[in-house]
């Protein structure tokens, strides 16, 4: 309990013309914690993820990441090189569209292996073995190792993206609607896989979703957003079973038994 947050943001504002995508948002994430950002379309979820991961600069506010060495990194002041280093080593990204997170012209094994090489792995046999092991973990037959992901189904591509992201054992993973574009049966399998991997590896995860069932299954804690503001946050089962804010009550009441 005495451990410090891995990510800490406060006073975040972001405007696009007359739209407040973020309006006085604060958030803290601790190691090993899965935090879901829940809200309707346009509520600012993706904007928040982008600001937290340094992809978009806020109009106001600060984001701090505590790195593996315990050093507090000011994400929007650290500079491009520092962020690139984090993205390669300590952070992972799982995009809604696997095409944004994979290199479709590189073999499945290569997609996983090149992330390892980017953090310094050099031994070809070792890299290949690690890639095969990760394909197995995400339930892709290692015999498909030399195939191009462009020929994979959407669900397989998404599982490959997860293997590519987790192979370097990042400390903090950003996921934006990781099961968004998939049909329901494929989604269930993928969620289950994410749930097991996240628990096994003890990852901190920031997960954007508009799906209450996904949040219920994966998240320890919820942040509910509406029009750029956090309207409610807390323990997942507390927020979903005893929602306090009018908007959260509406969200929860509009789905069947999540």
């Amino acid at each position: 309990m005495s451990d410090a947050p891995i990510l800490e943001a406060s006073g975040l504002h972001l405007r696009f013309g007359s739209v407040a995508a973020l309006d006085e948002v604060a958030l803290r994430v601790w190691p090993g914690e899965v935090v879901a950002i829940l809200g309707e379309s346009g509520s600012g979820k993706t904007s928040l993820l982008r600001v937290l991961s340094g992809t978009v600069a806020p109009d106001a506010g600060e984001v701090f990441y505590r790195d593996a060495a315990g050093v507090l990194v000011p994400v929007h002041v650290a500079g491009e090189a520092a962020l690139r280093r984090l993205a390669r080593t300590e952070w992972g990204f799982v995009h809604q569209n696997p095409r944004d997170g994979l290199r479709l012209g590189v073999s499945a094994g290569g997609n996983v292996g090149e992330r390892l090489m980017a953090v310094g792995a050099r031994h070809y046999g070792g890299i290949r073995a690690a890639a095969a092991e990760w394909l197995r973990r995400v339930e892709i037959d290692p015999a498909r190792m030399d195939d191009l992901p462009r020929d994979f189904s959407g669900g397989m591509q998404q599982r490959l993206q997860i293997a590519r992201t987790l192979v370097t054992r990042p400390r903090l993973v950003f996921m934006d609607e990781p099961t968004g574009g998939l049909d329901v049966s494929v989604q269930a399998r993928l969620l289950d896989l994410i749930r097991a991997l996240v628990a096994d590896l003890g990852l901190a995860v920031l997960l954007v979703t508009h799906d209450i069932a996904v949040a219920r299954l994966l998240a320890h804690r919820l942040v509910v957003m509406r029009r750029g503001r956090v309207v409610e946050h807390g323990l997942t089962d507390r927020v979903l079973d005893d929602p306090q804010h009018e908007y959260t009550q509406l969200l929860v009441s509009s789905v069947l038994a999540a």
């Binding site: 309990m1 601790w30 914690e33 269930a188 399998r189 969620l191 289950d192 749930r195 299954l217 320890h220 804690r221 807390g234 323990l235 507390r238």
Partner: peptide
């Protein structure tokens, strides 16, 4: 806060609900 409640639930406070909330595939 939510983290302390999780810790209390992990170590001290157990709960058996009327119905199991099933986790798929586990």
């Amino acid at each position: 806060d939510a983290r302390l409640v999780r810790e209390v639930r992990r170590e001290t406070l157990g709960h058996v609900s009327q119905f199991l909330r099933v986790i798929p595939r586990v």
